[in-house]
């Protein structure tokens, strides 16, 4: 087809077919109204969709935060198995104001635990040993094998477990680590005291090592080791609090014999029965010795029986009053 033929065909077109102008205008109005209504609807849907997406993003973000936070706390190895709280204990986390501590709280390295004058804690460590935090003591958990003693006293008893693992109590004046033992660490301003009941304890200070053996008490000042001397545990001030913070002993239904065996184990006193083992088994006890010192517990219990006691050079002698 050439240009002329195209012209011929196009010239057949006399006029374009057009819709009625008035109807077309009416149609335009109707279509425009429909379009605008649809636009509004789409905008509303878009807004609702955007709001839903924004809400979803916020929810997901919050979930991620919670999960991360949860993972963060779960990701760390547990620093202890369990803690028993007695009296008022305060916890400082993330430099926030101290709040009363509960046994179910999740601790992180750096948390500070402070016991009040009427409070103490018993930490059951992962290796089965027991760490007792005395009244008016402040500690900082560093890891499951290290704790920082800011002030006050700690009693670490590893004799109750067969699988004691290394554990370090650090202070400004030195770090104390045990070699299977029962020992007390007392940290006061410018004074560190370590009293060992059994076994041995190593103290490292300024790249020097000191060893403290059973029944020895070492005092350290900023200037160095001040003194090492022997002590008897049951009534020494550094030990008396550990007895007070024992798990409560239920006297009711126990015999005097049972009580003497129990208290001798907890004070390292040797018992001189004087032939009263069998008789004391028939003496049943009542009352309580909770939060009492060794001496007070002995006095309280023996006062309710016909027996007396006497402590001489680390031996607990049982005496019958009637004889």
């Amino acid at each position: 087809m050439n240009k002329e033929q195209a012209d011929t065909i196009l010239k057949q077109l006399k006029q374009r077919t057009e819709p009625d102008a008035a109807k077309q205008q009416a149609t335009k109005q109707a279509v425009m109204a429909h379009w605008q209504k649809n636009l509004k609807k789409q905008r509303r849907q878009r807004f609702a969709w955007t709001a839903a997406v924004a809400a979803s993003v916020i929810v997901v973000f919050a979930l991620v935060l919670v999960i991360n936070f949860d993972n963060g706390s779960q990701g760390l190895p547990a620093m202890y198995q369990q803690v028993d709280i007695h009296g008022t204990i305060m916890l400082e986390q993330d430099s926030h104001k101290a709040q009363p501590m509960t046994a179910d709280v999740s601790l992180k390295p750096g948390d500070i635990i402070a016991s009040s004058s009427d409070g103490y804690l018993i930490w059951h460590l992962n290796d089965g040993s027991e760490l007792r935090q005395g009244p008016d003591a402040r500690i900082v958990w560093q890891s499951d094998q290290q704790i920082e003693l800011l002030t006050g006293q700690l009693f670490h008893n590893t004799d109750i477990t067969q699988s004691a693992e290394p554990f370090m109590i650090s202070t400004k004046l030195g770090s104390v680590s045990h070699v299977g033992t029962q020992y007390v660490v007392k940290h006061q301003p410018n004074r560190l005291q370590v009293a060992v009941k059994s076994g041995r304890v190593n103290i490292s200070r300024q790249q020097k090592q000191h060893t403290v053996k059973g029944n020895e008490l070492m005092s350290i000042s900023p200037d160095g080791v001040e003194s090492v001397h022997t002590f008897t545990g049951h009534n020494h001030p550094m030990w008396s609090w550990t007895f007070k913070t024992q798990q409560p002993y239920a006297l009711k239904g126990q015999s005097l014999y049972d009580f003497v065996v129990w208290i001798s184990q907890h004070t390292d006193l040797a018992v001189d029965w004087q032939g009263h083992q069998q008789a004391t088994q028939g003496v049943l006890l009542q009352g309580t010795i909770d939060k009492m010192s060794v001496d007070m517990a002995l006095k309280t219990v023996f006062a309710s029986t016909d027996y007396q006691y006497q402590i001489d050079q680390g031996r607990l002698q049982i005496i019958n009053q009637d004889k």
């Binding site: 087809m1 050439n2 033929q5 011929t8 057949q12 077109l13 077919t17």
Partner: peptide
Amino acid sequence: IADGQETQPELQLHNQQIQQLIE
């Protein structure tokens, strides 16, 4: 038309259909 032999009467015979086609 393509052959260049178209005549006016033939075109007019189908004027309406052709107009629609061209449009």
